[in-house]
């Protein structure tokens, strides 16, 4: 077991998001088993949801495919069981709140710990609801949680989120849903600089719209690392994910 907290103390971290069950369940297992060889430090494994509000077309489509492939939360944990026989790759759970509610939050936490998931990202769980309904439960199970901050989050709230975060802070690169490929802008640089200058107490990872070596490396200057999601999924769909990962570290 590798401690994600420890990993998050380093820099130039590369994290990959993929949708569990996309393009097939077998392929998800293969990718998770092999991905560390390509310099990936940890993975966010997405539980597909029918109505992912924060996600663009690429992740939406991968979710449709994954659900069609029979991906349920129970199967998600089955996949992890198989993966855990082969690798201790750090895996972060990413999924919308409704599924955790339906599965039962307590059972969900136990399953996560059993399968060495140490950190959660739940994009539609705001800190206010977390504090009231989930904080004590997650803490009881030693589950870390990551919250998002965006270019429109005011400083005061960033401080509050820093306080509430137990994993890493997910710095959303621009005001948008996932999957938008954009050139690096002055505005974005300012946003990164502002966050860096705030000297937050928790590690930071930049995500959304990171899609090549240039945007990855640029983000790494301002945070502990960066997360690549939609672009990785596009390469998985094209069957050349390995080549893409290699290009990032070339």
């Amino acid at each position: 077991m590798k401690s994600i907290t420890k990993i998050l103390q380093s820099n130039n971290l590369l994290s990959i998001f993929l949708t569990a069950g996309f393009p097939t369940v077998e392929r998800t297992i293969e990718i998770l088993t092999e991905i560390e060889e390509y310099g990936v430090d940890f993975v966010e494994l997405g539980m597909p949801f029918s109505d992912p509000l924060a996600d663009g077309e690429t992740i939406q489509q991968s979710s449709v495919t994954a659900i069609r492939n029979g991906m349920t939360l129970a199967n998600y944990f089955e996949v992890l069981k198989i993966v855990r026989e082969k690798t201790d790759l750090p895996i972060v759970y990413m999924g919308y709140l409704n599924q955790i509610m339906q599965y039962g939050a307590e059972t969900f936490c136990k399953k996560c710990i059993e399968l060495d998931i140490q950190n959660l990202i739940i994009p539609d769980l705001p800190i206010e609801v977390y504090e009231k309904e989930y904080k004590s439960l997650f803490e009881k199970h030693d589950l870390l949680i990551s919250f998002l901050i965006t270019p429109t989050t005011p400083e005061e709230r960033i401080r509050k989120i820093d306080e509430m975060t137990t994993g890493f802070i997910y710095v959303v690169s621009s005001s948008s849903i996932t999957g938008k490929k954009r050139k690096i802008t002055k505005k974005q640089q300012k946003h990164y600089e502002k966050i860096k200058a705030m000297k937050l107490s928790k590690p930071t990872m930049i995500g959304f719209g990171i899609y090549n070596k240039e945007t990855y490396e640029f983000a790494c200057q301002y945070a502990n690392g960066a997360i690549i999601g939609s672009e990785f999924i596009r390469y998985v769909a094209k069957e050349n994910a390995a080549q893409f990962l290699t290009s990032l570290k070339a």
């Binding site: 029918s50 939360l73 409704n98 599924q99 509610m101």
Partner: peptide, 21 residues
């Protein structure tokens, strides 16, 4: 429907046992 979350609100919602809408 069962209790769930749709469009930012907790309410009654038609969904699969697994929580897909």
């Amino acid at each position: 429907g069962r209790d769930g979350i749709i469009h930012g609100s907790k309410t009654l919602l038609m969904q699969t046992p697994d929580g897909q809408i």
